[in-house]
Amino acid sequence: MKVAVIRFPGANCDQDAYFSLREDLGIQAEYVWHEDHSLEGFDAVFLPGGFSYGDYLRCGAMASRAPIMAEVRRFAEEGRPVIGACNGFQVLCEAGLLPGALLLNAGQKFLCKDVYLAVENRTSLWTRGVDKILRLPIAHGEGRYIADEDAVARLEDNGQIAFRYVDASGARTDESNVNGSAHAIAGVLNTKGNVLGLMPHPERATKALLGSTDGLAIMNAFHLVASNR
């Protein structure tokens, strides 16, 4: 079992993902450069956070057209596991592998804090059996999830909404929806449920020393992938 951590120029959470996987989960991980053309030998893909291509034009726009993304697309379409956190989520949306888009936070500010998430889908590979409110860090300026009402209705009907921003008690309030996302959506799945994108950083919450181990609830999916190989 080996995870590909895709490296785009300007990524800055690639090492967080790499060390979380290797040290905290005990799973093999290797960096794959954005100009590479192969995912041969890999069983899962992690698209890390950061500011790929300086966030020029739109967040994730250029990264989503990088050479390795053709391979990530094929990998995803085969039903194999792909996760994108923060900029990785933006890349997946820009690539059309997930619906919607991410815009400048409604409150304009870059937000670097912990948030609480309600797990809305508990059957996908990434969210199976997670039955608690998760506390995970966010660090983004452009995390306001947008999709038109028809698209949101489809997400809802298909169980593609993975996470919503809530408060510590699990209630949805205007305040808990930190970036003003449509329907407080913090993470979405593709229709098959093998591709997950989310703004919070599960890879930054897999060690008690760093403040939270709630990220394991999501990252443990890599163990599931390993055991199903």
């Binding site: 057209r65 619906p99 919607g100 888009a101 947008i146």
Partner: peptide, 9 residues
Amino acid sequence: DKLLANPVI
């Protein structure tokens, strides 16, 4: 269509 604009937004 391919890069400069995102039709979703």
